[in-house]
Design a protein around this nucleic acid. Structure first.
Length: 229
DNA sequence: CCAGACGTTGTT
DNA sequence: GTCTGG
DNA sequence: CCAGACGTTGTT
DNA sequence: GTCTGG
C-alpha cells in the first residue's frame, strides 16, 4: 500500500488469530516502519499458530554483502506468480500480518492530511504476507516479510491506487494452509476488500513523524484538521 | 555463454 | 536462487 | 509514507 | 534533489 505505515499495536489480538496476549515490550509498534518488527502469524491454521516478530521488508536469500541490498515492503498480488522473487514464497511461505489498520495520505490544501483506515466493525485485519528466513549477521535466523498489495477499492481509490490484500476471515485458514499451493486459487484470496467493511477517518499530523508511536495516534478524539473522508 | 539485476510506491 | 540482457 | 540529512579533514 | 531512517 502506499501508506507504508501499518499499525499493529494491539496487545490483545482477535480471538480468530488464536494468539496469546502480547507482552507490551514485544509490541512497541503502532506506527510501523520498514525494519521495525511486527507480529506475524505463520504455520497451519489448524494447529496452534505461532506468533513471531518479523522485520517488515523482505530480505531475499540472495542478498549478499557488498551488493545493494533489496528489501521490498510490498508485493503486487497480480504478479506474484511471474516474479521469480515471489513465486516460490507464494507456494511455500505465506503469512498473515495482523493489524489494527493502516495510514494513507492525501494532498489537502498544500499539506498532507493523514487518514486512518481500519475495519468498520472494530475488529482486526489479517493482511496477506510472504516471508522468508535468512541467517542474520549474528548467525541467528532473521525472518522478514512483505505485504501483498492489490488494487484499491472505490472507497480508497481517491487516497491511493493500491491497498493491502486484506484477507476475509474465512480465507485466512486457506492462506496459511500448507496443503494449498495453486497460485490461481491463492490469488483469488487477494482481491480488494469490499468498501463497506472499511472505515476511513482523518487523524492528526502526529503520525507523520515516525518518532511518534503510540495509540494516541489513532485516538478517536484526535484533532482532525482538514476533515473529510 | 556470462554479468547483472532481482521489488514497490510515489511523483511529475 | 533465477531470470533478463547483451 | 514523511522527516531529516545530505561533506571532509583532523583530532581524540 | 535524493537518499536514509523510522
Amino acid at each position: 500500500m502506499c501508506g507504508r505505515y501499518v499499525i499493529a499495536g494491539v496487545h490483545e489480538l482477535s480471538e480468530r488469530f488464536q494468539l496469546r496476549t502480547i507482552p507490551a515490550e514485544l509490541f512497541p509498534t503502532w506506527n510501523a516502519a520498514p525494519t521495525q518488527r511486527l507480529p506475524v502469524v505463520v504455520e497451519d491454521a489448524a494447529t496452534e499458530r505461532a506468533l513471531r516478530m518479523m522485520q517488515w521488508g523482505l530480505l531475499p536469500r540472495w542478498n549478499r554483502p557488498g551488493s545493494r541490498p533489496i528489501a521490498p515492503i510490498n508485493a503486487r498480488a497480480e504478479t506474484l506468480e511471474e516474479k521469480p522473487m515471489f513465486r516460490g514464497l507464494l507456494r511455500r511461505s505465506r503469512c498473515i500480518v495482523p493489524v489494527n489498520g493502516f495510514y494513507e495520505w492525501r494532498q489537502g490544501g498544500g499539506r498532507k492530511q493523514p487518514y486512518y483506515i481500519a475495519p468498520a466493525d472494530g475488529d482486526i485485519w489479517g493482511l496477506a504476507g510472504l516471508y522468508d528466513e535468512i541467517e542474520g549477521p549474528d548467525g541467528e535466523p532473521l525472518a522478514s516479510y512483505t505485504i501483498v498489495t492489490t488494487a484499491a477499492n472505490p472507497l480508497l481509490a481517491p487516497l491511493h491506487e493500491r491497498m493491502p490484500a486484506i484477507l476475509r476471515p474465512d480465507d485466512e485458514e486457506a492462506w496459511l494452509s500448507r496443503d494449498v499451493d495453486d497460485p490461481r486459487q491463492l490469488e483469488l484470496l487477494l482481491r480488494p476488500a469490499p468498501a463497506d467493511e472499511i472505515a476511513v477517518r482523518p487523524v492528526g499530523p502526529a503520525v507523520n513523524s515516525a518518532r511518534n508511536n503510540g495509540p494516541e495516534l489513532i485516538a478517536a478524539d484526535e484533532p482532525a484538521d482538514g476533515a473529510d473522508g
